[in-house]
Simulated scan of single mutants.
Amino acid sequence: MILGIGSDLANIERIQRVLDRHGDRFKNRVFTEVEQAKANRRRDQAGTYAKRWAAKEACSKALGTGLAMGISWKDMAVANLETGQPVMHVTGWAKERLAKMTPDGHEAIIHVTLTDDHPWAQAFVVIEARPLA
């Protein structure tokens, strides 16, 4: 069953301006070390950050909170499987919220997809509850 759906569209040029103006302060407030390492390996760092920004926004919407109710930016983090597929990890308040949303006898699976076409970065998040075997 679907527990939540979220989407977000981020402007890569806007994220670049924020990076230019606030640099490490912005990165350290919003992105985990894993996310920053991924961006640092990419030629299009702003695009990489914009996709992850959009994913965090989309995840907060799928959790039904937006960026309110105590969620921290770093409570939601995008990593990649060896195949390149993005995955969303939640900690802190986001993890607590996810647990409250998940019906007994089910496990929550967070699906995330990212795309960009300059100047836009987009993310969709679907939270699914699967019955435990």
Rank of each mutant, 00 (worst) to 15 (best):
Q36V: 12
F31S: 03
D117G: 04
Q36M: 12
D104R: 08
N40H: 11
W93V: 15
L19V: 01
P131I: 05
A79V: 15
M88D: 02
V30D: 08
P119Y: 08
H89G: 10
H89W: 10
V78K: 09
R25V: 11
H22P: 00
G66T: 01
Q16V: 03
H89N: 15
G64H: 02
V34P: 00
K56S: 07
F124P: 00
L67S: 04
W53Y: 15
D24E: 15
I109T: 11
K61Q: 07
V126M: 12
E35V: 06
W93C: 14
Q36D: 06
D75Q: 09
V30A: 13
I5C: 03
F31K: 07
K100I: 07
L98H: 04
I15E: 01
A129W: 13
Q36S: 06
A94V: 02
V90D: 04
R41M: 06
V18S: 12
T115L: 11
E35G: 03
A129N: 03
Q122M: 14
V78Q: 09
F26G: 08
W93I: 14
P103I: 03
E96K: 10
K100G: 13
T83M: 12
Q16S: 13
A54N: 11
L9Y: 11
N80A: 13
M88C: 14
L3K: 10
W73A: 02
I127G: 00
K56Y: 06
A129T: 03
Q122P: 00
V126S: 03
A123V: 07
K95D: 15
Q85P: 00
A50M: 04
N11K: 08
L63Q: 05
N80G: 09
K27I: 15
E35M: 04
A79S: 15
H22R: 15
M88A: 03
A79G: 14
Y49C: 05
L3I: 14
D44L: 07
G105C: 02
K74H: 02
Q122W: 12
W93M: 15
I110D: 09
D116I: 04
K27S: 12
T48V: 03
G4A: 05
K95I: 00
L114W: 07
T102P: 08
V112E: 05
Q45R: 14
F26P: 09
K38E: 14
A79P: 00
V78H: 07
N28F: 02
E96L: 11
Y49H: 08
F124A: 12
D44W: 12
H89P: 01
A121S: 02
P86S: 13
G66H: 00
E57G: 01
R42G: 00
G6M: 02
N28Y: 07
H111M: 03
A54Q: 07
D8A: 08
Q45K: 15
A133K: 11
D20H: 08
K27R: 15
E128H: 07
D24W: 00
A10F: 06
H111D: 15
R43Y: 14
E33T: 11
A79M: 10
P103T: 05
L19H: 05
R29F: 04
G6V: 03
A121L: 02
K51Y: 00
H22G: 01
W53S: 07
E96R: 10
E57R: 02
A55Q: 04
H106V: 06
G64N: 04
D24M: 01
A99L: 12
